[in-house]
Design a protein around this nucleic acid. Structure first.
Lengths: 239, 239
DNA sequence: AGAGAATACAGTGTATACACTTAAATGTAA
DNA sequence: TTACATTTAAGTGTATACACTGTATTCTCT
């Protein structure tokens, strides 16, 4: 995704788009929720102008959708769309495997190993956060900025939905086991194995998510897992 | 890409982002060119506010880059980036082949065949326009909106650079021949062949572009192919 | 009470105005 | 002429203000 330094000149500001993007990714702002410009502006202590700019940027990223009435909402994905995005993620991520193996230094591998080890016994929310970082770090190693960018975008879009799966199923432990395998494949410089693992990683998670969606009434509802703190922010921003 | 109807409420406006996106894609606004808000606003007959929103949206799409000084410019890609994007395009496009074959109706195929036939003897600029439409149409048929979106984004980003190759090399006739083959593969419902052709299509074009870049001093300079009319618009918008 | 008209409200879109920053142009002294 | 200080201009960032639109609410009349 974009560099975190939003602008040199006005750079000391907390970067409105960044805050909204993270809030959406972490599920604090649930899919479908209206994003009222004035509320966000007040919450952030700025006028509506920079808020509008952030919303337009996020809309271009696909995280926000402007309705016909002009109102912005957190993009809500249909199950088929989530499915498609998981497929896209699998394709992009597995394609980066050779580059990752090629450019990763032993120090990189160690850092990743440590990161994954630190995730072993985290609860769902904290684990999801680290999980996102782990994959982003992997992408960064490939030194393919546009692949990483596209993949990061997709990861961000599906994250609210992934979190449902992580919190509900035994998904977390399986994914975590695969993370360890990925580190070993990386250490062994086995790019085919890494690609295979990344493909499998996505496909399994995708299937788990869809299975969960199928067996519950309200198919995919990240709102349900929003934390209490998250809810209060969401309520503050909501209509 | 986003739906063309930018907004219901203020929808009758010519959609500023749209105009800028097209201008960049077609090379009227050359990579690296400064995008002065006030100039664009005046040229479009609006204030800077909606212009800024458009620029932020385009920045999120990667077509525009905000410098450290806050100024926006048309994104200029390094040769490695163009190379990477061609690879990305090949990957995405070829992956859509089975879905395209699956969902295309005979009427769709006929329409595409006609479109391609109409391109046979066009000069470079007009051909490039139709070429873009042809591929977009192909993506649309796959009924995979997020794949199509990502691919369209990439196509747009590399378009100014592709045009250089089309105008300088015999690229156009080779690409056109491949287009005809794609139609036949599609008509024969041979998705493997279609995927192969799409891969080859990108890889060959990519190599041709890089070869051209290597043998010229100024590696990739789309400015050189901007038409006279384009230049005047660019100059008007430029600093 | 219920249907329809009039009003108030909530929200967006955007033009204007002003503060701030950087870089260029100008002027001045050695 | 060159180096340095000063002013000017060009550009951006954003707060405020106002116009517009749809929706809910209230009021009125039957």
């Amino acid at each position: 995704m974009e560099a975190s330094i939003e602008s040199g000149r006005a750079g000391q500001r907390p970067a409105i788009a960044e805050v909204l993007r993270e809030s959406i990714r972490q599920g604090m702002l649930a899919p479908g929720q209206p994003l009222i410009q004035a509320s966000i502006a007040e919450a952030m202590g700025v006028s509506r102008i920079p808020v509008r700019e952030a919303l337009h940027a996020l809309a271009a990223e696909g995280l926000v959708t402007f309705g016909e009435d002009g109102g912005a909402r957190v993009t809500a994905l249909a199950p088929e769309e989530v499915d498609e995005l998981w497929t896209l993620r699998a394709l992009l991520e597995s394609h980066m495997a050779p580059a990752i193996v090629r450019t990763a230094t032993p120090a990189d591998v160690d850092a990743l190993r440590e990161l994954v080890a630190a995730m072993d016994d985290l609860e769902a929310t904290a684990w999801s956060d680290r999980n996102f970082s782990f994959h982003q770090e992997l992408h960064r190693l490939a030194e393919m900025p546009h692949f990483a960018d596209a993949t990061g975008r997709v990861l961000t879009m599906i994250e609210p939905y992934s979190r449902v799966a992580v919190s509900v199923l035994q998904e977390q432990s399986e994914a975590q086991a695969e993370h360890h395998q990925m580190i070993e494949a990386l250490a062994a410089e086995d790019s085919d194995e890494l690609a295979r693992l990344l493909l499998h990683h996505s496909h399994r998670a995708r299937k788990a998510l869809l299975a969960y969606a199928a067996e519950t009434a309200k198919p995919v509802d990240p709102q349900a897992v929003a934390t209490a703190a998250a809810r209060s922010l969401a309520d503050h921003l909501g209509a």
